[in-house]
């Protein structure tokens, strides 16, 4: 039987209450959202927080809406809610592509999008998807609210800019016209972490790429993104040739490691190939195809 180490349990009744509890219990406390990453780590004693602050009853953090030209998602939105949200799928099909291949339907009922981002696993699909669409993270603390771009949110594996007395409360994605997006993942079996994955968001003016975002998961890409490949695409025509070049650049700049999911050279190959496939599908969606 896997039994977590002893901890104290507190149930937050509001965001303010959660922040007060975080301030009170300090860096040895952890926020408990869906718990589908944290509880397994606690069972293996890889995490031994002294206090858990359960935010599952903070229904005010579970929402999806369009406001001020942005798609705004509460951090406690469950994966299943994001996957079934028509408004999210309409503006950012990349989020539905990614959610469809995250874990399984029962886990998605419980796991939250904020929890996944704060867990900061280097293979997290949503981190790559939100890097691609240049999301903005809203972080609340005792001193007030601050926003951080998705690409500055992660400091490294299992580490984010969220301080021990702060809470990620919202994810925002600016909605700009002429966009299409897609996510491509290779996994060993359904619901597994990716061997490699790539997401792409494209903004076109005619055939010209005016802006592009490429997100990569599980291949050691800095900030879950492929900035050099994006630079090579901006202002170029949205052709298969330019996509292939971008895929090569993305593969050159990532740093995958060999592990039980696959050898580094295969992951590098996936970074290139999946970048191309995601860009192609994103292009199809800009042009109105379902891709």
């Amino acid at each position: 039987m896997q039994v977590p180490a002893h901890f104290e349990y507190e149930k937050a009744t509001s965001v303010e209450h959660c922040l007060a509890l975080l301030a009170k219990f300090g860096p040895e406390s952890r926020v408990l959202a869906g718990g589908h990453s944290l509880i397994p780590m606690m069972k293996l004693r890889l995490a031994q927080p002294e206090t858990l602050i359960d935010i599952n009853d903070l229904t005010e953090l579970g929402y999806l809406r369009v406001s001020d030209g942005e798609l705004r998602m509460g951090a406690l939105t469950r994966h299943a809610e994001l996957l079934s949200s028509p408004v999210a799928g309409e503006h950012f099909p990349i989020l539905h592509d990614a959610e469809r291949v995250i874990a399984d339907p029962i886990v998605r009922n419980r796991g939250t999008i904020g929890g996944s981002l704060c867990q900061a696993d280097p293979s997290e699909d949503l981190s790559a998807a939100f890097a691609a669409v240049r999301a903005i993270m809203v972080i609340q603390g005792g001193a007030g609210t601050r926003t951080v771009p998705a690409r500055e949110f992660h400091l490294g594996p299992y580490e984010t800019v969220v301080e021990s007395d702060e809470l990620l409360t919202e994810i925002r994605v600016p909605i700009l016209p002429g966009s299409g997006s897609a996510y491509e993942k290779v996994e060993r079996r359904a619901g597994d972490w990716p061997v490699g994955a790539a997401g792409a968001a494209l903004w076109l003016d005619g055939d010209t790429i005016t802006e592009v975002g490429i997100g990569l998961a599980a291949v050691g890409a800095a900030h879950f993104s492929a900035a050099e490949a994006e630079d090579a695409l901006r202002g170029e025509p949205a052709t298969d040739d330019s996509f292939t070049r971008a895929g090569q650049i993305a593969a050159e700049h990532c740093r995958p490691i060999s592990d039980q999911r696959g050898p580094a050279d295969y992951k590098r190959h996936l970074a290139a190939e999946l970048t191309v496939r995601a860009l192609r599908r994103a292009r199809g969606r800009v042009r109105g195809g379902k891709g």
């Binding site: 149930k11 408990l32 718990g35 359960d54 029962i106 009922n109 419980r110």
Partner: peptide, 29 residues
Amino acid sequence: DTSNCGACVVWLDETPVKSCTVFAAMADG
């Protein structure tokens, strides 16, 4: 015990969850 097999699925409010990955305290109320 690792949220993989799904033998422990029960409903928590309106949705099925894997109850090996939920603390009893989280079902309080």
